[in-house]
Design a binder for these strands. Structure first.
Lengths: 250, 250
DNA sequence: CGCAGGATTGATATCAATCAATAACGGTGG
DNA sequence: CCACCGTTATTGATTGATATCAATCCTGCG
């Protein structure tokens, strides 16, 4: 549980691997310079590690370089709701930095590499580089938009619609950041994760996924989910898909 | 529907009525000056008006000066999910401004007065006043935090817990902005709004509210809900309450 | 081989949705 | 002032969806 290892800085922002993906916006040389200063190191964590805990007050912000994770909240008796998944290019810890206390926890699903920033430098970022400040706000608005859709899903979609939405949503996000190239599995997560995302019981989640499998829309083998027909999944969910504009990252 | 009336600018930012409420952060004279420039007018809308529509591309941002509203999304077949309620001091239209297209709609519950800003001026705000840019990001993070809690609620709380959470949540927010002084009703909304927020059917919502009423925690009379025991509601929901720090507004 | 975590399944119990009325209330026109 | 009407709230009966319970089955791994 929560075994993590700190590493030294290894990648220069200029050569950031994320910069090669065409889902991300270009950064100006000035912005890259600023980020090089703002970056205070790298951090890697093993699969299953807890990165941030509800109620804590982390001095850091992170951008995900590699790996998968998820944000969640729990009720006092242990019921858990997964709020969103975290993929490369995502900024995490912003709530903690601005509002002073994390209201959710974060766990890794796979091994993960993170780029580390000091929250104390955040206001300086807004002063020194308005465009990067704007980008952070952009990312916050995007997260809000995803949450809106999840809330619609959990509140108003049926079990099968929810499952179809979740899987097509994750499939699209994964593809954007270069995963799913050739029939790679979706995410290394379990049906327990799916059920805690959909707001359903584990058993009912299993039966619902089975229906999708019977219709040949997905295949769940071993610990992985393969997406066979994203279009049909989106149709079942009544979901339009992600906007396809390029997005910023830090 | 959607009958709205434009009004001339009437209130100087310096005398903004919100500034008197002690739930809001102080603004420096420079910031107030900037806001005076940024503000392009006022707008008032009748109860029941639609302010912004999913899919549209509004050229404006607004800060609520008076009144109540809500954000919602709909599925193709009409099922509706209310995402959050909007109270004085809230900034709306940010998603539309940053991401270019609104992914939700906004409707008023009461007559409403809004302070209007041009989205084209938004980047200039980040350049000219980093602290206001930071504030906008703060507000976005706060909205995200509320959505996280709603998602936990809809995904993992039982019907009565959800209802208890929603009502204590709204009660707290209302009180902060000076409503609920002496047994004022909570919000001018119907049980249909409650059901679309909780992700429950109207009938079941009614029966659930009745239970809260039988326990003397709320009273629903006419079109209004009165909160009788916020503490117990929070205990039922297993909810900690809102943080009580001051917050910024634009 | 045996174990552990995850997936699957069938039976049953609950919760919440739906259906179908009815009641209460506010506003309107006569 | 009263009858009428539309909206909202309320209620009981029934159906349907999802949760819970309790096994069993895999599969990767030491």
């Amino acid at each position: 549980m929560s075994q993590t290892t700190a590493l030294k800085q290894q990648i220069a922002c200029k050569n950031c691997p994320l910069r090669k993906l065409d889902c991300f916006r270009e950064m100006s040389p000035d912005e890259v310079d600023f980020m090089s200063d703002f970056k205070s190191g790298e951090f890697s964590a093993q699969a299953g590690a807890t990165l941030l805990v509800e109620g804590s007050n982390s001095p850091h912000l992170y951008t995900v370089l590699e790996g998968w994770g998820f944000r969640y909240k729990s009720l006092p008796d242990g019921r858990r709701q997964i709020l969103n998944f975290i993929l490369p290019g995502d900024l995490i810890g912003l709530q903690g930095s601005l509002l002073n206390e994390m209201a959710h926890s974060i766990e890794t699903l796979s091994d993960m590499v993170l780029c580390v920033f000091e929250r104390d430098g955040l206001f300086d970022l807004f002063k020194s580089s308005p465009s990067l400040g704007y980008d952070i706000t952009w990312l916050a608005a995007r997260e809000e938009q995803m949450l809106d859709e999840h809330l619609l899903s959990v509140g108003r979609r049926t079990a099968i619609e929810r499952a179809a939405y979740l899987i097509s949503f994750l499939s699209q996000r994964a593809r954007r950041v270069g995963h799913l190239e050739d029939q790679q599995p979706l995410i290394p997560f379990t049906q327990t994760h799916v059920s805690d995302t959909l707001g359903l019981s584990l058993v009912h989640t299993n039966k619902t996924l089975k229906k999708l499998q019977d219709r040949k829309l997905i295949r769940w083998s071993g610990k992985s989910c393969y997406v066979l027909d994203e279009e049909k999944l989106m149709a079942i969910a009544g979901w339009e898909g992600l906007p396809d504009s390029r997005r910023p990252f830090l």
